[in-house]
């Protein structure tokens, strides 16, 4: 392990066929699996909104985002399966059985279009910041190369999120109220997405899977989005929030981590419905996978 850590510290990149310590393999695999699960669950949330999205302009972006997220999940499941820990089917079964994790923000329900704007604006920014911090210095080559593609597309989603936010913020009072309600619901889950402060000996940092501490990323998000939302006349649902004149920084006050822990144990407000919806979607689309996997003569016989 010492030799392996020295290799990583020298900027060494691990490829799929390479030898690697089991602890490293498990840590990278679990990380990619959670990312893949989150893309799939996020894509399904987005899909729910295709018929409900107002206007063709936003509808096109929701359709495309759905395909992007599902496509990202697809790529990530391939990269994860290549590590030889679980097959893709095993990963999906574990997801549907509540045995593996996905990001906290997908354990909540997106009730209104305001929620969708908040997700695209606040949550996507938090997810993108986390992914960028992994991409910057990730020691596992296949993941790093796929992340480059994913980050470029998530960066584009940010622009769609800004477009949604600008339109709702410059809209009627009803629209602005809808968005304020959504901020009240999504501010804390977005912030909790970064996780609690990194432990001093965090394996993900030590093995160059992540390159930045959770609290640093979380603080950067706060310093960007608190003043931005305020500049559009929205309020932040943090009663103990203070502005420090000497450092010129916002402090949101104490963070309650209980909601995050609940989601990680599949006990979030919408966890059960989300997971059962993902399972029934998987079952309903079985015929598509069977048709695609069928050898050519069978396809000819079907038509």
């Amino acid at each position: 392990m010492e030799e392996f850590e020295a290799f990583l510290n020298d900027g060494g990149i691990v490829e799929a066929p390479d030898d690697m310590p089991d602890e490293y393999r498990d840590a990278v695999f679990t990380f990619i699996e959670m990312h893949a699960n989150s893309e799939l669950m996020g894509g399904l949330t987005e899909r729910d909104w295709i018929p409900k999205t107002p206007g063709l302009r936003h509808k096109m972006s929701v359709v495309a985002k759905t395909q992007d997220e599902i496509g990202h999940g697809h790529l990530l499941y391939m990269v994860a399966a290549d590590m030889g820990v679980k097959t893709r089917t095993e990963m999906l079964e574990d997801l549907f059985d509540g045995k593996s994790r996905f990001h906290n923000v997908f354990h909540y329900q997106a009730k209104t279009w305001g929620d969708q704007v908040a997700i695209a604006f606040l949550v996507d920014a938090a997810a993108l910041a986390s992914q960028q911090a992994v991409f910057k210095n990730c020691s596992y080559g296949p993941y790093r190369r796929i992340l480059k593609r994913i980050i470029s597309e998530e960066g584009f989603h940010m622009r769609l999120g800004e477009d949604r936010m600008m339109r709702i913020a410059n809209g009627s009072q009803v629209q602005r109220d809808l968005f304020q309600d959504a901020i009240n619901r999504w501010f804390w889950p977005s912030l909790q997405l970064f996780g609690p402060d990194s432990k001093p000996n965090d394996k993900l940092l030590r093995w160059h899977i992540k390159s930045e501490r959770n609290e640093v990323l979380r603080d950067a998000w706060v310093q960007k989005f608190v003043p931005l939302l305020q500049s559009y006349g929205f309020t932040i649902p943090a009663p103990d929030m203070k502005f420090d004149e000497t450092t010129n920084r916002w402090d949101v006050g104490p963070i309650d981590w209980e909601p995050l822990k609940a989601t990680l144990a599949q006990g979030g407000p919408d966890s059960a419905r989300r997971i059962s919806e993902a399972l029934s979607n998987w079952q309903q689309t079985a015929w598509v996978r069977e048709a695609l996997d069928a050898p050519a003569p069978e396809i000819a016989a079907m038509t």
């Binding site: 066929p17 599902i70 496509g71 697809h74 296949p142 597309e153």
Partner: peptide, 19 residues
């Protein structure tokens, strides 16, 4: 045949296994 966008599909390299 389905990638993250209408204009993309997904393959695997038979030699180096890259996605």
């Amino acid at each position: 045949m389905f990638g993250p966008s209408r204009c993309r599909s997904v393959s695997r390299c038979a030699a180096c296994t890259e996605t």
